[in-house]
Design a protein around this nucleic acid. Structure first.
Lengths: 349, 349
DNA sequence: ATTAAGAGCTTAATTGATTAAGAAGGGCGC
DNA sequence: GCGCCCTTCTTAATCAATTAAGCTCTTAAT
């Protein structure tokens, strides 16, 4: 079963390759009879149809959108925020009839062949740490690119939220309720897999721009409320999992004096903190207030959080890339919203 | 800014195109000096690197796995079972350093250009209804294909579970607890968007093979227990959502006599049934037993369900396709397991 | 001095299509 | 009978690479 190409069929019928091509892609250029015969022979020979790669080369379009995400794919699919974004992006892709090519970035070994070889028309980059080699590789491809959340790349469209403001809103909410002993649990500051207390230097050396900005928002709000940021306990975890959140929760709640409010930079982490509180028999929000981020897993748990329009962002990213105007260097900040639920209240006492 | 190709660089330097190609892909074939000069000029001209499409054409590999799913992508990303499967598939893709191309199947208009044009090395097809045109299109591509869950395509590898047996286990569980008044709520029987009671004919004319098999498993178990299947109320919903499950729940629980146990073919639906029970002030499992399917969203809710190894299935599918032996017509049934939690108990007597 | 080996580059075939432009033939009006 | 248009097909350029094989020189060994 040798390879069957347009030429094979052409030879068999004694017609030119062009004719066979027309039979598939431009029926009006051919007499019905010949066309039928061509399709018949194609079927007989087991022709798989015009080779998409060759077609793509000739037409100069790939029919796919590339998606880059900082984490392993298994992880990406486990993150409710990412999933929400994917949904939006997929909707845009679907409407345009193009595929969505999810590109793995081998963690550890930092080869980026997969970016170099991706047959796509544009790239959507989401949450890459500063200086990640994949970003350079993407830019080298000179295709339309839009970056979501981080990092900001001058000259390319950017989609995100006003991170410091959003984080500030979360912090001011609990401060406004009267809390003075805050604790912070954050994931995604570094890529070294470290879990534990983070001092000022570690906090600021974050390689994830958005997380850095978020932290800055917390700090600013605290300082405006007269708190000494240096005294706000700050726990860093390596993975955005409920289990990691629980660990952070235990660390923070084990302090003396115990924080009365804990800020987290993801909902998943916040859920873990709630678990820790439950472990210790603490009432939420009576003994402890908890704030999440992104409104991705918060509703059922009654979690106060910052809502982000993740689906809208995904769709906007897709449309921007597919509109061709994908290169317009636009910095678009989406609205966020503090959603107050049952996980926050004034401290007693 | 005209297009820059290998040739542009070659011309500029007065060397052959082959030389420039070697500079990128086979450094050992070139003197260091020339190679450096080539890379320099490439940079200067803004060369985007060897064109992946051309490369792919020449090398005969796409570096991507195609994934087909019956639903809209936004929906696929909302389905915990699908997500679990994706995770596994993505892990395999990641290990092999290939991308995962998610292909939208425009719902409604049934064009399948996207399948025809997909630049992939193999296809993974998941849960397609009988006779869906996309399947024919996939088979026409003559690439390695593996089908997951449905439909079974003779001559191609198939991955799934023993649906009738698994469904039977779910049914026998409640029957064994002493329930005699069962109700069934199922999604994904037809594509006509119908929600309501399904008579025998509608039940059996299901276009989704796996769901048909599942239903058969329920029926068999009921009949073996001496129940008249024709009297078991069967409610069909169009979408796999919690809201749809609640609707089904209300329909079933509004019957007189009221069922004491409800079987559902997804966990999401089961959660909706629990909502309906709560609406009506019914105790679970005291007044009502509920069984889900897939163990995709069941743990937190304490739902009794059938656990499927979705991640393992995804990984197996990926490895099968990437091993090249992807054409081996294997029919592999994965283990399932009845997980009994707090949503089922004996009916009170 | 002669030959073999090796380094460094070029030639040319190959991958599998699309499509503008041209050519051959038939039908029609004048 | 002549020119003109239309249909139907062919020719040939093009898309952007990879790579086996061949050609020149050096260099080293005999």
């Amino acid at each position: 079963m040798a390879k069957v190409t347009l030429q094979t069929i052409a030879d068999r019928l004694g017609v030119s390759r062009a004719t066979v091509s027309y039979a598939f892609s431009r029926p009006d250029q051919l007499s019905d009879g010949l066309r039928r015969r061509i399709l018949e022979v194609a079927d007989e020979l087991g022709y798989a149809g015009p080779n998409p790669t060759a077609r793509s080369l000739r037409l100069g379009r790939a029919g796919a959108l590339g998606l880059l995400f900082s984490e392993t794919l298994a992880y990406a699919f486990a993150d409710p925020y990412a999933i929400g974004f994917f949904q939006g992006l997929a909707t845009a892709a679907e409407d345009a009839g193009v595929g969505l090519l999810i590109l793995p970035l081998p963690h550890g070994d930092r080869r980026t062949d997969t970016v170099r070889d991706a047959v796509v028309d544009a790239f959507c980059v989401m949450s890459l740490p500063d200086g990640h080699p994949a970003l350079a590789e993407v830019l080298a491809r000179r295709l339309p690119v839009v970056v979501v959340d981080e990092p900001y790349v001058p000259g390319h469209p950017f989609l995100g939220i006003d991170e410091p403001a959003a984080a500030g809103a979360a912090a001011r909410h609990v401060l406004g309720l009267g809390h003075r002993r805050l604790g912070v649990a954050m994931v995604g500051l570094h890529e070294d897999g470290h879990t534990g207390w983070a001092d000022g230097e570690r906090q600021e050396s974050t390689v994830f721009e958005a997380m850095r900005a978020r932290r800055g928002g917390y700090q600013r709000a605290c300082e405006e409320a007269g708190l000494d940021w240096g005294r706000v306990p700050f726990y860093e975890v390596a993975r955005n999992s409920r289990e990691a959140g629980r660990r952070a929760g235990h660390a923070l709640l084990g302090l003396d004096p115990r924080p009365t409010a804990i800020l987290t930079n993801t909902d998943v982490l916040a859920l873990g903190v709630l678990d820790a509180a439950a472990d210790l028999g603490l009432e939420v929000p009576g003994d402890l207030s908890v704030v999440g981020f992104s409104d991705s897993a918060a509703e059922e748990a009654g979690l106060t959080t910052i809502r982000q329009a993740k689906q809208e962002m995904g769709e906007a990213a897709g449309r921007l890339l597919l509109s061709g105007a994908g290169a317009a260097p636009e910095r678009r900040l989406f609205p966020y919203e503090l959603v107050v639920r049952a996980s926050t209240a004034a401290p007693h006492g």
